[in-house]
Design a protein around this nucleic acid. Structure first.
Lengths: 194, 194
DNA sequence: TGATCAATCAACCAATTGATTGATTTCCTG
DNA sequence: CAGGAAATCAATCAATTGGTTGATTGATCA
Protein backbone atom coordinates (compact mmCIF):
# COMPACT_ATOMS: atom_id res chain seq x y z
CA UNK A 1 0.00 0.00 0.00
CA UNK A 2 1.81 3.00 -1.29
CA UNK A 3 -1.00 5.49 -1.52
CA UNK A 4 -2.73 6.27 1.77
CA UNK A 5 -4.38 9.49 0.71
CA UNK A 6 -7.05 9.06 -1.89
CA UNK A 7 -5.99 10.81 -5.05
CA UNK A 8 -8.08 12.36 -7.75
CA UNK A 9 -7.95 11.06 -11.26
CA UNK A 10 -8.46 13.58 -14.01
CA UNK A 11 -9.68 12.86 -17.52
CA UNK A 12 -6.92 13.08 -20.13
CA UNK A 13 -8.19 16.12 -22.00
CA UNK A 14 -8.71 18.09 -18.81
CA UNK A 15 -5.20 17.30 -17.64
CA UNK A 16 -3.80 18.43 -20.94
CA UNK A 17 -5.64 21.71 -20.54
CA UNK A 18 -4.30 22.11 -17.01
CA UNK A 19 -0.80 21.37 -18.23
CA UNK A 20 -1.11 23.88 -21.06
CA UNK A 21 -2.39 26.52 -18.68
CA UNK A 22 0.38 25.97 -16.15
CA UNK A 23 3.00 25.96 -18.88
CA UNK A 24 1.70 29.24 -20.27
CA UNK A 25 1.87 30.89 -16.87
CA UNK A 26 5.44 29.73 -16.44
CA UNK A 27 6.47 30.92 -19.88
CA UNK A 28 4.96 34.32 -19.16
CA UNK A 29 7.00 34.48 -15.94
CA UNK A 30 10.33 33.06 -16.96
CA UNK A 31 10.26 32.85 -20.72
CA UNK A 32 10.85 29.87 -22.89
CA UNK A 33 14.35 29.33 -21.70
CA UNK A 34 13.12 29.01 -18.12
CA UNK A 35 10.45 26.45 -18.88
CA UNK A 36 11.02 23.25 -16.91
CA UNK A 37 8.91 20.13 -17.14
CA UNK A 38 9.19 19.60 -13.39
CA UNK A 39 7.84 23.04 -12.60
CA UNK A 40 4.88 22.49 -14.84
CA UNK A 41 4.13 19.19 -13.13
CA UNK A 42 4.44 20.84 -9.72
CA UNK A 43 2.14 23.67 -10.73
CA UNK A 44 -0.49 21.19 -11.86
CA UNK A 45 0.13 19.11 -8.77
CA UNK A 46 1.13 15.91 -10.50
CA UNK A 47 4.23 13.80 -10.88
CA UNK A 48 6.64 14.40 -13.75
CA UNK A 49 5.95 10.92 -15.07
CA UNK A 50 2.24 11.64 -15.09
CA UNK A 51 2.92 14.73 -17.09
CA UNK A 52 4.89 12.74 -19.60
CA UNK A 53 2.03 10.30 -19.79
CA UNK A 54 -0.19 13.08 -21.07
CA UNK A 55 2.41 15.00 -23.04
CA UNK A 56 5.17 12.65 -24.19
CA UNK A 57 8.00 15.15 -24.61
CA UNK A 58 8.92 18.80 -24.63
CA UNK A 59 8.35 19.16 -28.34
CA UNK A 60 4.77 17.97 -27.90
CA UNK A 61 4.41 20.26 -24.92
CA UNK A 62 5.37 23.29 -26.96
CA UNK A 63 2.94 22.29 -29.67
CA UNK A 64 0.25 21.95 -27.02
CA UNK A 65 1.00 25.43 -25.72
CA UNK A 66 0.95 26.92 -29.19
CA UNK A 67 -2.35 25.24 -29.97
CA UNK A 68 -3.83 26.36 -26.68
CA UNK A 69 -2.85 29.93 -27.40
CA UNK A 70 -4.12 29.59 -30.93
CA UNK A 71 -7.54 28.52 -29.71
CA UNK A 72 -7.79 31.53 -27.44
CA UNK A 73 -6.82 33.95 -30.19
CA UNK A 74 -9.20 32.24 -32.58
CA UNK A 75 -12.10 32.52 -30.14
CA UNK A 76 -11.29 36.16 -29.58
CA UNK A 77 -11.13 36.84 -33.29
CA UNK A 78 -14.43 35.07 -33.92
CA UNK A 79 -16.17 37.31 -31.40
CA UNK A 80 -15.10 40.51 -33.15
CA UNK A 81 -17.61 42.48 -35.16
CA UNK A 82 -16.84 42.55 -38.86
CA UNK A 83 -19.18 45.22 -40.17
CA UNK A 84 -19.38 48.96 -39.87
CA UNK A 85 -17.21 51.86 -40.96
CA UNK A 86 -13.58 50.75 -41.41
CA UNK A 87 -12.30 53.45 -39.09
CA UNK A 88 -14.52 52.11 -36.33
CA UNK A 89 -13.44 48.56 -37.05
CA UNK A 90 -9.83 49.67 -36.79
CA UNK A 91 -10.47 51.31 -33.45
CA UNK A 92 -12.39 48.27 -32.28
CA UNK A 93 -9.46 46.00 -33.12
CA UNK A 94 -7.08 48.21 -31.21
CA UNK A 95 -9.46 48.52 -28.29
CA UNK A 96 -9.87 44.77 -28.18
CA UNK A 97 -6.12 44.34 -28.17
CA UNK A 98 -5.75 46.87 -25.37
CA UNK A 99 -8.37 45.05 -23.33
CA UNK A 100 -6.64 41.73 -23.77
CA UNK A 101 -3.32 43.31 -22.84
CA UNK A 102 -4.87 44.53 -19.62
CA UNK A 103 -7.01 41.56 -18.69
CA UNK A 104 -4.73 38.80 -19.88
CA UNK A 105 -1.22 40.20 -20.06
CA UNK A 106 0.09 36.66 -19.96
CA UNK A 107 -1.40 35.89 -23.36
CA UNK A 108 0.62 38.40 -25.29
CA UNK A 109 3.83 37.59 -23.46
CA UNK A 110 3.44 33.96 -24.43
CA UNK A 111 2.57 35.02 -27.96
CA UNK A 112 5.80 36.99 -28.21
CA UNK A 113 7.87 34.16 -26.82
CA UNK A 114 6.34 31.74 -29.29
CA UNK A 115 6.84 34.10 -32.22
CA UNK A 116 10.47 34.58 -31.28
CA UNK A 117 10.96 30.84 -31.11
CA UNK A 118 9.09 30.46 -34.39
CA UNK A 119 12.08 32.08 -36.03
CA UNK A 120 14.19 29.03 -35.24
CA UNK A 121 11.65 26.25 -34.80
CA UNK A 122 9.87 24.93 -37.87
CA UNK A 123 7.13 23.19 -35.88
CA UNK A 124 6.20 26.31 -33.95
CA UNK A 125 6.42 28.45 -37.06
CA UNK A 126 3.84 26.26 -38.78
CA UNK A 127 1.41 26.76 -35.93
CA UNK A 128 2.02 30.42 -35.20
CA UNK A 129 2.47 32.14 -38.56
CA UNK A 130 -1.15 31.57 -39.54
CA UNK A 131 -2.24 33.56 -36.50
CA UNK A 132 0.19 36.38 -37.12
CA UNK A 133 -0.87 36.40 -40.76
CA UNK A 134 -4.56 36.40 -39.93
CA UNK A 135 -4.08 39.39 -37.71
CA UNK A 136 -2.03 41.17 -40.35
CA UNK A 137 -4.56 40.37 -43.05
CA UNK A 138 -7.35 41.67 -40.90
CA UNK A 139 -5.69 45.07 -40.63
CA UNK A 140 -4.76 45.09 -44.29
CA UNK A 141 -8.36 44.39 -45.21
CA UNK A 142 -9.66 47.14 -42.95
CA UNK A 143 -7.26 49.63 -44.50
CA UNK A 144 -8.16 48.59 -48.03
CA UNK A 145 -11.85 49.10 -47.39
CA UNK A 146 -11.22 52.31 -45.48
CA UNK A 147 -9.35 53.83 -48.37
CA UNK A 148 -12.36 53.23 -50.62
CA UNK A 149 -14.83 54.67 -48.13
CA UNK A 150 -12.58 57.65 -47.53
CA UNK A 151 -12.02 56.83 -43.85
CA UNK A 152 -8.32 56.48 -44.47
CA UNK A 153 -5.79 58.51 -46.40
CA UNK A 154 -5.73 57.99 -50.15
CA UNK A 155 -2.38 56.53 -51.15
CA UNK A 156 -2.07 54.67 -47.88
CA UNK A 157 -0.16 51.39 -48.25
CA UNK A 158 -2.45 48.88 -46.51
CA UNK A 159 0.22 46.24 -46.00
CA UNK A 160 2.79 48.63 -44.58
CA UNK A 161 0.18 50.27 -42.38
CA UNK A 162 -0.82 46.87 -41.05
CA UNK A 163 2.80 46.11 -40.22
CA UNK A 164 3.21 49.40 -38.43
CA UNK A 165 0.06 48.81 -36.43
CA UNK A 166 1.08 45.32 -35.40
CA UNK A 167 4.61 46.38 -34.57
CA UNK A 168 3.38 49.24 -32.43
CA UNK A 169 0.86 47.01 -30.68
CA UNK A 170 3.29 44.21 -29.95
CA UNK A 171 6.00 46.61 -28.88
CA UNK A 172 3.61 48.19 -26.42
CA UNK A 173 3.33 45.06 -24.27
CA UNK A 174 6.27 46.22 -22.16
CA UNK A 175 4.72 49.55 -21.25
CA UNK A 176 2.30 50.96 -18.67
CA UNK A 177 -1.38 50.41 -19.37
CA UNK A 178 -2.54 53.99 -19.29
CA UNK A 179 -0.36 54.92 -22.25
CA UNK A 180 -2.26 52.65 -24.57
CA UNK A 181 -4.98 55.21 -25.18
CA UNK A 182 -2.40 57.66 -26.49
CA UNK A 183 -0.90 55.02 -28.74
CA UNK A 184 -4.29 54.10 -30.08
CA UNK A 185 -5.32 57.64 -30.93
CA UNK A 186 -1.95 58.33 -32.51
CA UNK A 187 -2.32 55.26 -34.72
CA UNK A 188 -5.74 56.42 -35.79
CA UNK A 189 -4.39 59.86 -36.64
CA UNK A 190 -1.50 58.31 -38.51
CA UNK A 191 -3.73 56.63 -41.06
CA UNK A 192 -7.06 58.39 -41.23
CA UNK A 193 -7.84 61.11 -43.72
CA UNK A 194 -7.35 64.61 -42.31
CA UNK B 1 55.42 17.72 -22.28
CA UNK B 2 51.74 18.12 -22.88
CA UNK B 3 51.76 20.70 -25.61
CA UNK B 4 53.51 19.62 -28.77
CA UNK B 5 51.91 22.13 -31.10
CA UNK B 6 52.91 25.68 -30.43
CA UNK B 7 49.85 27.60 -29.34
CA UNK B 8 49.08 31.25 -29.75
CA UNK B 9 48.57 33.42 -26.69
CA UNK B 10 46.08 36.23 -27.05
CA UNK B 11 45.98 39.38 -24.93
CA UNK B 12 43.11 39.40 -22.43
CA UNK B 13 41.11 42.21 -23.96
CA UNK B 14 41.34 40.75 -27.44
CA UNK B 15 40.13 37.39 -26.18
CA UNK B 16 37.20 39.03 -24.49
CA UNK B 17 36.28 40.70 -27.75
CA UNK B 18 36.55 37.40 -29.60
CA UNK B 19 34.36 35.75 -26.98
CA UNK B 20 31.76 38.51 -27.18
CA UNK B 21 31.71 38.28 -30.95
CA UNK B 22 31.31 34.51 -30.99
CA UNK B 23 28.61 34.68 -28.33
CA UNK B 24 26.67 37.26 -30.33
CA UNK B 25 26.78 35.11 -33.44
CA UNK B 26 25.47 32.14 -31.49
CA UNK B 27 22.68 34.14 -29.89
CA UNK B 28 21.62 35.42 -33.28
CA UNK B 29 21.49 31.82 -34.53
CA UNK B 30 19.96 29.96 -31.64
CA UNK B 31 18.68 32.61 -29.27
CA UNK B 32 19.49 33.06 -25.65
CA UNK B 33 18.12 29.76 -24.59
CA UNK B 34 20.49 27.98 -26.97
CA UNK B 35 23.61 29.76 -25.78
CA UNK B 36 26.18 27.26 -24.47
CA UNK B 37 29.52 28.17 -22.96
CA UNK B 38 31.14 25.21 -24.69
CA UNK B 39 29.97 26.31 -28.12
CA UNK B 40 31.34 29.77 -27.56
CA UNK B 41 34.70 28.34 -26.52
CA UNK B 42 34.70 26.08 -29.57
CA UNK B 43 33.84 28.96 -31.87
CA UNK B 44 36.73 30.99 -30.50
CA UNK B 45 38.95 27.94 -30.64
CA UNK B 46 39.85 27.79 -26.96
CA UNK B 47 39.19 25.52 -24.02
CA UNK B 48 36.17 26.04 -21.78
CA UNK B 49 38.43 26.69 -18.85
CA UNK B 50 40.28 29.36 -20.81
CA UNK B 51 36.97 30.99 -21.54
CA UNK B 52 36.12 31.00 -17.87
CA UNK B 53 39.48 32.52 -17.15
CA UNK B 54 38.48 35.54 -19.21
CA UNK B 55 34.78 35.58 -18.38
CA UNK B 56 34.19 33.99 -14.96
CA UNK B 57 30.56 32.93 -15.41
CA UNK B 58 27.53 33.15 -17.62
CA UNK B 59 26.19 36.22 -15.88
CA UNK B 60 29.41 38.04 -16.67
CA UNK B 61 29.24 36.71 -20.20
CA UNK B 62 25.81 38.17 -20.74
CA UNK B 63 26.96 41.49 -19.37
CA UNK B 64 29.89 41.36 -21.75
CA UNK B 65 27.58 40.71 -24.68
CA UNK B 66 25.27 43.53 -23.67
CA UNK B 67 28.17 45.93 -23.32
CA UNK B 68 29.61 44.85 -26.63
CA UNK B 69 26.29 45.50 -28.33
CA UNK B 70 25.96 48.78 -26.46
CA UNK B 71 29.29 49.98 -27.78
CA UNK B 72 28.29 49.23 -31.34
CA UNK B 73 24.98 51.06 -31.01
CA UNK B 74 26.70 53.95 -29.30
CA UNK B 75 29.27 54.27 -32.09
CA UNK B 76 26.51 54.18 -34.66
CA UNK B 77 24.52 56.80 -32.83
CA UNK B 78 27.53 59.08 -32.49
CA UNK B 79 28.09 59.00 -36.25
CA UNK B 80 24.57 60.24 -37.01
CA UNK B 81 24.02 63.78 -38.16
CA UNK B 82 22.08 65.87 -35.68
CA UNK B 83 21.22 68.98 -37.66
CA UNK B 84 18.95 69.77 -40.54
CA UNK B 85 15.19 69.67 -41.10
CA UNK B 86 13.49 67.29 -38.64
CA UNK B 87 11.77 65.41 -41.43
CA UNK B 88 15.13 64.68 -43.01
CA UNK B 89 16.59 63.65 -39.66
CA UNK B 90 13.68 61.27 -39.21
CA UNK B 91 14.25 59.75 -42.61
CA UNK B 92 17.97 59.54 -41.92
CA UNK B 93 17.35 57.63 -38.69
CA UNK B 94 15.10 55.16 -40.47
CA UNK B 95 17.49 54.82 -43.36
CA UNK B 96 20.33 54.16 -40.96
CA UNK B 97 18.28 51.51 -39.19
CA UNK B 98 17.42 49.87 -42.51
CA UNK B 99 21.07 49.82 -43.48
CA UNK B 100 22.07 48.19 -40.23
CA UNK B 101 19.30 45.65 -40.61
CA UNK B 102 20.68 44.73 -44.01
CA UNK B 103 24.39 44.87 -43.32
CA UNK B 104 24.39 43.52 -39.78
CA UNK B 105 21.16 41.57 -39.29
CA UNK B 106 22.79 39.82 -36.35
CA UNK B 107 22.93 43.03 -34.36
CA UNK B 108 19.21 43.58 -34.17
CA UNK B 109 18.47 39.96 -33.44
CA UNK B 110 20.78 40.07 -30.47
CA UNK B 111 19.26 43.39 -29.45
CA UNK B 112 15.80 41.83 -29.44
CA UNK B 113 16.95 38.82 -27.47
CA UNK B 114 18.58 41.04 -24.90
CA UNK B 115 15.53 43.28 -24.61
CA UNK B 116 13.30 40.28 -24.11
CA UNK B 117 15.59 38.98 -21.38
CA UNK B 118 15.74 42.45 -19.87
CA UNK B 119 12.13 41.95 -18.88
CA UNK B 120 13.19 39.31 -16.39
CA UNK B 121 16.81 40.09 -15.70
CA UNK B 122 17.63 43.14 -13.62
CA UNK B 123 21.29 43.21 -14.65
CA UNK B 124 20.51 43.18 -18.35
CA UNK B 125 17.75 45.70 -17.91
CA UNK B 126 20.18 48.16 -16.33
CA UNK B 127 22.47 47.91 -19.33
CA UNK B 128 19.89 47.80 -22.10
CA UNK B 129 17.16 50.24 -21.11
CA UNK B 130 19.43 53.25 -21.54
CA UNK B 131 19.94 52.30 -25.16
CA UNK B 132 16.27 51.73 -25.83
CA UNK B 133 15.50 55.00 -24.07
CA UNK B 134 18.13 56.91 -26.00
CA UNK B 135 16.68 55.71 -29.25
CA UNK B 136 13.16 56.57 -28.12
CA UNK B 137 14.24 59.99 -26.91
CA UNK B 138 15.95 60.67 -30.19
CA UNK B 139 12.71 60.13 -32.10
CA UNK B 140 10.69 62.07 -29.55
CA UNK B 141 13.08 64.99 -29.91
CA UNK B 142 12.89 64.91 -33.69
CA UNK B 143 9.11 64.92 -33.56
CA UNK B 144 9.00 67.78 -31.06
CA UNK B 145 11.22 69.93 -33.24
CA UNK B 146 9.40 68.91 -36.38
CA UNK B 147 6.07 70.01 -34.99
CA UNK B 148 7.50 73.47 -34.39
CA UNK B 149 9.02 73.73 -37.83
CA UNK B 150 5.82 72.46 -39.41
CA UNK B 151 7.46 69.33 -40.83
CA UNK B 152 5.13 67.15 -38.78
CA UNK B 153 1.43 67.27 -38.06
CA UNK B 154 0.30 69.74 -35.41
CA UNK B 155 -1.18 67.82 -32.48
CA UNK B 156 1.16 64.91 -33.03
CA UNK B 157 2.02 63.14 -29.79
CA UNK B 158 5.84 62.90 -29.97
CA UNK B 159 6.15 60.14 -27.39
CA UNK B 160 3.45 57.95 -28.92
CA UNK B 161 4.84 58.55 -32.41
CA UNK B 162 8.30 57.54 -31.22
CA UNK B 163 6.86 54.31 -29.78
CA UNK B 164 5.07 53.53 -33.01
CA UNK B 165 8.21 54.13 -35.01
CA UNK B 166 10.32 51.94 -32.78
CA UNK B 167 7.71 49.20 -32.66
CA UNK B 168 7.39 49.18 -36.42
CA UNK B 169 11.15 49.16 -36.89
CA UNK B 170 11.80 46.37 -34.42
CA UNK B 171 8.90 44.33 -35.69
CA UNK B 172 10.28 44.58 -39.20
CA UNK B 173 13.40 42.55 -38.40
CA UNK B 174 11.60 39.34 -39.35
CA UNK B 175 10.65 40.50 -42.80
CA UNK B 176 12.18 40.64 -46.27
CA UNK B 177 14.60 43.47 -46.90
CA UNK B 178 12.94 45.01 -49.89
CA UNK B 179 9.80 45.87 -47.94
CA UNK B 180 11.64 48.26 -45.69
CA UNK B 181 11.37 51.12 -48.16
CA UNK B 182 7.58 50.84 -48.09
CA UNK B 183 7.57 50.80 -44.31
CA UNK B 184 9.79 53.83 -44.19
CA UNK B 185 7.71 55.92 -46.56
CA UNK B 186 4.52 54.90 -44.77
CA UNK B 187 5.97 56.00 -41.44
CA UNK B 188 6.92 59.34 -42.94
CA UNK B 189 3.42 59.80 -44.32
CA UNK B 190 1.93 58.81 -40.99
CA UNK B 191 3.47 61.72 -39.15
CA UNK B 192 4.30 64.48 -41.58
CA UNK B 193 1.99 67.36 -42.28
CA UNK B 194 -0.16 66.83 -45.36
C1' DT C 1 68.74 34.30 -18.09
C1' DG C 2 65.69 33.25 -14.82
C1' DA C 3 61.77 34.41 -12.27
C1' DT C 4 57.17 35.93 -12.38
C1' DC C 5 52.73 36.30 -14.26
C1' DA C 6 49.19 35.81 -17.80
C1' DA C 7 47.07 32.43 -20.66
C1' DT C 8 45.89 27.82 -21.77
C1' DC C 9 44.35 23.01 -21.38
C1' DA C 10 42.85 18.11 -20.03
C1' DA C 11 40.25 16.04 -16.74
C1' DC C 12 36.82 16.26 -13.55
C1' DC C 13 32.65 17.63 -10.64
C1' DA C 14 28.05 18.59 -9.10
C1' DA C 15 23.69 20.04 -10.33
C1' DT C 16 20.05 20.18 -13.53
C1' DT C 17 16.91 18.26 -16.60
C1' DG C 18 14.17 15.60 -19.96
C1' DA C 19 12.70 11.21 -20.05
C1' DT C 20 11.83 6.08 -18.68
C1' DT C 21 10.49 1.98 -15.94
C1' DG C 22 7.64 -0.81 -13.38
C1' DA C 23 4.57 -1.08 -9.87
C1' DT C 24 0.10 0.87 -7.99
C1' DT C 25 -4.33 2.99 -7.82
C1' DT C 26 -8.65 4.70 -9.64
C1' DC C 27 -12.17 4.56 -13.01
C1' DC C 28 -15.45 2.59 -16.09
C1' DT C 29 -18.05 -0.77 -18.52
C1' DG C 30 -20.17 -5.13 -19.69
C1' DC D 1 -18.67 -6.74 -9.43
C1' DA D 2 -14.83 -8.26 -12.04
C1' DG D 3 -11.42 -7.05 -15.03
C1' DG D 4 -9.27 -4.21 -18.27
C1' DA D 5 -8.09 0.51 -19.39
C1' DA D 6 -6.61 4.94 -17.85
C1' DA D 7 -4.05 7.66 -14.70
C1' DT D 8 -0.66 8.19 -11.25
C1' DC D 9 3.72 7.90 -8.66
C1' DA D 10 8.50 6.77 -6.66
C1' DA D 11 12.77 5.80 -8.18
C1' DT D 12 16.11 5.99 -11.49
C1' DC D 13 18.84 7.05 -15.82
C1' DA D 14 21.66 9.25 -19.18
C1' DA D 15 22.89 13.37 -21.18
C1' DT D 16 23.81 18.11 -20.74
C1' DT D 17 25.92 21.95 -18.78
C1' DG D 18 28.07 25.62 -15.99
C1' DG D 19 31.96 25.70 -13.53
C1' DT D 20 36.55 24.11 -11.03
C1' DT D 21 41.29 22.19 -10.30
C1' DG D 22 45.94 21.71 -10.90
C1' DA D 23 49.45 21.34 -13.93
C1' DT D 24 51.73 23.44 -18.15
C1' DT D 25 53.22 26.75 -21.52
C1' DG D 26 54.36 31.23 -23.39
C1' DA D 27 55.50 36.10 -22.65
C1' DT D 28 57.84 39.82 -20.20
C1' DC D 29 61.19 42.26 -17.96
C1' DA D 30 64.70 43.27 -14.61
Amino acid sequence: MKQVIKQHYEAGDDRRRQIASAARKLIAEKGFEGLRTREIADAVGINVATMHYHVPNKEALIVLIAESLGEELEADRAAMRRDGPPLELFEAELENYGQRLQKRPETMKVFSELMQRAGRDETIRRIMTPFADQWHNRFTEIFEQGIKTGDFRPGLNPVAAASITMGAAIHHRHKPKQEFAALKSELVNAFRKH
